[in-house]
Design a protein around this nucleic acid. Structure first.
Ligand SMILES: [Zn+2]
Ligand SMILES: [Zn+2]
Ligand SMILES: [Zn+2]
Ligand SMILES: [Zn+2]
Lengths: 511, 511
DNA sequence: CTAGGTCATAGGTCAT
DNA sequence: ATGACCTATGACCTA
């Protein structure tokens, strides 16, 4: 009672906590042994609700989510699985009060477990305790005959019986706080949600237009591309008016040095994509090499769709920025620039993203939520054929193990391939095509000397990848244009007006 | 403000409301404690949206807009500022019911917060409490360096004046005899506590003004940064951050050593508050542990009131002394010093007195009569809501069992919290904030190692107490300002001219 | 001691 | 964009 001072005189503690022990499920401070497991109050209540109300959960992310102490955006399915894995038993009365509704619960459980137990022994560990583990898309009619509806919805059923129903429906903007960014950097702050990461996210929220409008353009070009000026300035008119032959003949007018171009492009990639690449690299490293399961917010399908659409805008934005910085690009007329940017953005997507498709799964993070589209989501969102195309093309590129610089030079070559796009200044396009080809070849020969992947054969493979990029670009753009993005999986719309992905057109026409 | 006015237009029955409480932000009927503040559904949702979506708000009217219950035409920026000012805090990890301890503090603070809000009414609702309302660079009347009275009182009531009117009176003459300022910074040319007594006293006669006048002024930061307002203009943010780091990087400019600071503050507390603490400790020990009934002089209620008012002067005086001795404080400009001292004295009161509230009674002794305000007197003098708030806040702090040193470091952190007070040299404030935070944390870790109250959780609790101090300070000062101190219990005056208690300004204005 | 229940508060929804 | 209403959560209570 001494306690030094008068600390013990204050009102007694209301709850008994065990600060030394932490929840076996979520690592929060435990409050005792519940249902046979050292658990916190939250997990205890969660387990009780899940069982008594027969709330079905489903994991959208492969079933290996981390169940941490952070309450928001925690995967409910994996939390419940963790409860079971740790050995929670609903009907096991260790101490304390005898469950009042034991009989009722027993009846429900027995009817269900007989159903669940029937197929096989070991695998149904997951389906113990009356917890449906099947895909939530399964209709309630699947429940066994002759018993009360095991999958009865606790609330009034709405039209959506699919996964939106079981995950909080979130609007795009509202979700930001739910983000559990799984950026594997271990330097996560333990305190408030105001971090530089979120700042960066908020920056990403700036629209494509304003971003590009504000961003300083190319470091080098003689002539700036200004999206605000609707009309051609004198300079631009003059440039556009050049005869193609004259153009090429102009000595030093557009003289490009290989070394300088390589240097510029390297810098450009770092500026435009550096952050993403760093984040994604680390993320992929953690997932694949460290075996860490990404922690993901529970989002509805609608949110995912929104994210994808907005992610496309992000791709376009970065593609614009990078193209504008390519040495020589500024010499195109404005119309040509517009055409080339808008007709190549899916090729740019493949260039930037292919490296992060491994093991049939994507390892990049999209949008302000930094959503990780694992294979589950990809299947939900994309048509099987298209998904197969994506996986095939990315795998083909991955076999080359291109560096980002090489990949972007390849993209430039694809962009500037004569005939691939209808532009005014075809001569300049041809010139750039050969220039960037020179750059790539000389890069391959200098940097990959005596490597396993080098030599004429390898160079041929790389140039073959050119075709992959171009075809992927053409096909995908044609495909995307027809999609109905309001429902998933995305399917071609019935004939009529194509969906407009915010981006290119806004970028050029927006004002 | 009549409640019945807007209360009548909503006869519709709503779910669960707390008709007695109104939103601390917009005075609409509240629906509970949200994010730590008694708030309505609207403000709750507004705050959540603002934080999670990082919606930038801009005030176009100077930042002092009235945030009323009417939704139309309400300034979003000022509404959000009000949310922050009332202490809303977004915890991205927690969900569910809020622990009772925190809840009761929130409720208590809110109740007399609204109390203080009511009578202030139409004139200046959101005066200079927290947020920068105007550019501090342009206030020549405040910092006029050439004028003979250094801190001439403004003749007309301005925002800067209302503080001085409601702060207790401190006469410099009384102060001089007691001052033993131990200026810690070696750059000071004052060594008041060191020389002979007479010498020191004669030096003290130079008064605080000259002391402050001599204190080195920091070179005004090139550009102020506002830590609160995050516009989406990345340029501004970048500049601000750069400016800050530049400032902080100034080598040797205001280099503070943690060990030295802790030592200095310890000494300072002992000098300023040592006698009081010894007396009060003994008194409390006798009363509580020995069971002795405190001897209580028989005084009239009027005497008690006078004692309390004068006691407040004592609080301010000691707060001044202590602040001036804090390492780093002298580097503020005089105007900043003045502002910070005058805007934090109730927080200082809580810091110094909380330990002596036990068992719903105060155990400190006030004034020359050493009056002990037992619960009876407290009830006589203070309004129930305010008393409850005092008891709740003191209890919250007492749970931490802070040592005086820890408590004063906490006070310093609260004082130096960027954005809490409008000062010119925000960079220095931020620097001191981090410095004193470092001091406190390292103190907690070294001295409380392996104690029951230690570890990250405890550190978080301590930092949480920061909010209690800050909010108690803000709200109480606002409340006290409206009181009619001529009769007991003290109640807010009816609209008329508020009581004038000259105080801090006198302290600086002196002779 | 804990099972089971309660309910205040978190975040999400959707008509306005 | 707003806010009345909704569900999920978990701290606390009672037996
Ligand atoms: Zn848990
Ligand atoms: Zn999961
Ligand atoms: Zn409100
Ligand atoms: Zn305003």
């Amino acid at each position: 009672m001494e306690e030094g001072t008068f600390g013990s005189l204050m009102p007694k503690k209301v709850a008994v906590w065990y600060p030394d022990s932490c929840c076996d499920i979520c690592t929060a401070p435990a409050s005792g042994v519940h249902y046979g497991v050292v658990a916190c109050e939250g997990c205890k209540a969660f387990y009780r609700r899940s069982v008594t109300q027969k709330i079905p959960h489903h994991c959208y992310f492969g079933g290996n989510c981390v169940v941490g102490p952070r309450a928001k955006g925690r995967c409910r399915a994996c939390r419940f699985q963790s409860c079971l894995k740790q050995g929670m038993k609903f009907d096991s009365t260790k101490m304390g009060r005898v469950p009042l509704r034991k009989r009722e619960v027993d009846r429900a459980l027995s009817s269900f477990s007989s159903l669940a137990k029937a197929p096989s022994g070991p695998t149904e560990k997951l389906s113990a305790e009356g917890q449906p583990t099947s895909s939530p898309v399964t209709s309630p009619s699947k429940t066994g005959p002759g018993s009360s509806p095991l999958y009865a919805m606790p609330q009034q059923p709405t039209a959506s019986q699919d996964l939106e129903r079981y995950s909080p429906r979130v609007r795009l903007g509202q979700l930001v706080n739910n983000v559990v960014i799984n950026v594997p950097t271990p330097t996560q702050d333990l305190h408030l949600g105001q971090g530089s990461v979120e700042e960066a996210q908020s920056l990403r929220r700036t629209s494509v237009i304003s971003f590009v409008a504000k961003s300083p353009l190319v470091p080098a070009p003689l002539q700036r591309f200004s999206p605000r000026t609707k009309h051609n300035s004198c300079l631009e008119v003059e440039n556009a008016g050049f005869e193609t032959t004259q153009w090429l003949a102009q000595e030093g007018w557009c003289h490009l040095d290989k070394e300088q171009t390589i240097k510029t492009v390297t810098e450009l990639i770092s500026q435009v994509h550096g952050d993403d690449y760093a984040t994604w690299d680390a993320f992929m490293h953690d997932c694949i090499l460290e075996g860490k399961a990404p922690r993901q917010p529970q989002v509805s399908l609608q949110v995912c769709i929104d994210q994808i659409v907005n992610g496309a805008a992000d791709v376009v934005e970065k593609h614009c920025k990078l193209s504008l910085g390519l040495p020589g690009f500024a010499h195109f007329s404005k119309a040509d620039q517009q055409t080339m940017v808008s007709e190549n953005w899916m090729g740019a997507w493949l260039t930037t993203h292919h490296k992060y498709y491994r093991n049939n799964t994507a390892y990049y993070l999209i949008g302000p939520l930094q959503i990780h589209y694992c294979i589950y989501w990809l299947q939900q969102v994309l048509e099987p054929d298209y998904l197969r195309a994506v996986l095939t093309c990315t795998a083909a590129l991955n076999r080359l193990n291109l560096t980002p610089l090489e990949a972007f030079l390849l993209l430039a070559i694809a962009m500037f391939t004569p005939g691939s796009t209808e532009v005014e200044n075809e001569a300049h396009m041809a010139f750039l095509h050969s220039h960037y080809s020179d750059c790539l070849i000389s890069l391959l020969r200098s940097s990959r000397r005596a490597t396993a992947q080098s030599g004429p054969d390898f160079e041929a493979q790389v140039l073959g990848a050119l075709g992959v990029i171009r075809r992927f670009n053409v096909i995908t753009r044609k495909y995307v244009r027809t999609l109905d993005l309001t429902t998933a999986p995305f399917r071609p719309k019935e004939g009529s007006n194509p969906v407009s992905i915010p981006g290119v057109m806004d970028y050029y026409d927006g004002f």
